[in-house]
Nucleic acid binder design. Structure first.
Lengths: 195, 195, 195, 195
DNA sequence: TATGAATGAGCGTTCATTCAT
DNA sequence: CATGAATGAACGCTCATTCAT
């Protein structure tokens, strides 16, 4: 349990959810604490009861992202034992998000981009959800019998992230779909590389 | 010629170069005009002779990026007539940048990510260099006889951008290289999809 | 019995003692009620059961100081009937505190200095312990037969307070000791002025 | 030339003078930059052109104090060659200030008291004017042929500072005068200690 | 009595931008 | 063309104090 999770409670969760939405839509810098508070109907000062600093709020949002990622991967694991099905399921999550991705980018990738310039630890923390997905994908490729599963995991997730970035840049959801279809075909074909 | 290109001169170019460096390393928000001015040895007020607003300076940096992209593509065109060689050349540019990409992200992609939240036109302008590369890659795939060259261009450049994002997130240049190798192999193999 | 003394109890005393320590080491402004509460292991809101306002807490600390001063003077009275011995005893209290005085100043004098700018009554109250010492010293000089004992009391205690201030400013306990030695010699010599 | 003196100009001096007055009358904590600015008729933001932080402004005030002290000592040196006359002149400065000292304390001593709790360097800097006076007084006692002039300097200035503190605590200028008269007599009598 | 939560006024500070010279 | 100075709106944050339970 990280420091930013210490104080629990419904209200805190609502604040984090509101902040996550705002961070995603307007970016970290453009999101002022006053507006986060207002959007959640609490006075500005009260935020500081739950989050000591703005960074701490961002950290809480990252933690919430991490939890969502964990839940997503667990759901994928639960739905099928076949690694190809699992990996395809991962890819389809971004297909499902194509419209919002075209408008605001991938929630995971854009946060990492925005926090990249920090020299506090926030940049590293933001990368953790991405890292976790990479590890999970690596396990799936390993289960498929790949000699070197890590590069395959990188290729898969790079495709997803790059597709999201392009869709966002072009404001065109189709770019995301194009890449998703490519990755699905690649997975079906045995990736042309493993074994 | 855009508004931000109106006034020429060496000093202006030096300012743009300094600003580009700063924007890339520290991000748009963290880059203050005072520091840009100071880094170039120019008094703060004088910046406004060359750039009417901060946005105008950012626009100038984007324009400079666009010019660099044009030059890069022209160089690629000049070096070989073979589309596969040309596309491989493109990919290798990111291999060459792998260390700085791991530290600060792709200069093109990270700027687009940072400016995505704007509702002024800056977000659209930042996407133009990326768009141009996509168009160029599409032409190369068309020259190779691909039925639907656009998806191939998207897959290629998504790979590059996603590799850069992952390398940056993980602070590991090797992620960039892994993806570069994958794309090169994909290009060599005929992309498994064209024709 | 002042308003701030109304409610008794061990817990209250512990709070006052903790607050006194904090006020002395960190100053009035830098001492937050939250930290006073935390240091004493009491929930923040609970302080307000014992002290209606922060000023009320400060007042309680001043009252505690006054009580300590009373006890000190009583002890001095009890140890000897000779006014010179008594006054020397007073001076030696500051010699005993020389190290902490060099670090944080005289507890009596520095509080008076800090509260001097108030226009509520706190400035006046903080002066009371000092006033009491002055009165006591005046009595001793009167017992020695001095025509005008008040100036002698002022000279004695001004020396103590000035020595403390200088020791604190220079962060050098020796300044305190130097002044103590001077005052002792002055007392022994008959102050050169009385009669 | 310290960092806080870099930007010169009349306006800066007026700001420092206004801040010094406010710091003296209301204390460091109670003096807000907004009020300093308002009192000098400048917008709040403009203060930051001259002083990077509030601490920097306080430092500038301390520097101004130091300059005044230097000027005072030089004037004392210029008026007479006799050390006793010089030292008496020093003491009389506080006699001249007795009313304001009774209201707000000694400008030198109260600032040192207020800044004592800091762990940045401000506490040390505030002590410098006091240190300088002590050094000067030591020289005068040395010129009188004292074996150990430092303790005499401490005794003299401790008397001044203690007298000021008592006058301030009691809100009674007479306490200052009483101590001044004592110190003058002590100086005239040969201090009873030198030689 | 006790307490976690809430409240809001106010602080120091930043910075894009403007302006007189 | 050049520049030092000015400007003010907005931000993150603190804290004494209140309140419902």
């Amino acid at each position: 349990m990280t420091d930013s999770q210490k104080r629990g409670g419904e209200k805190r969760e609502k604040l984090v959810a509101g902040a996550a939405e705002m961070l995603y839509r307007h970016g970290v810098e453009a999101t002022t604490l006053a507006r986060v508070a207002e959007a959640s109907g609490v006075p500005a000062g009260n935020l500081y009861y739950y989050f000591k600093t703005k960074d701490d709020l961002v950290r809480a949002v990252i933690d919430a992202q991490a939890a969502q990622v964990r839940a997503m991967l667990a759901a994928l694991d639960g739905r099928s034992g076949d690694p190809v099905v699992r990996l395809t399921g991962l890819v389809r999550r971004w297909e499902d998000m194509r419209d919002v991705v075209a408008r605001h980018g991938c929630p995971l990738g854009s946060l990492v981009s925005e926090l990249d310039h920090r020299d506090d630890g926030l940049d590293v923390e933001a990368a953790r959800p991405i890292s976790r997905i990479l590890d999970w994908a690596e396990q799936q490729f390993a289960a498929l019998g790949a000699d070197r599963p890590r590069p395959l995991a990188i290729t898969l997730f790079a495709g997803i992230q790059g597709g999201a970035l392009l869709a966002n840049a072009l404001r065109d959801p189709e770019a995301m779909s194009v890449e998703v279809r490519h990755l699905e075909a690649w997975l079906e074909s045995g990736t042309g590389l493993c074994k």
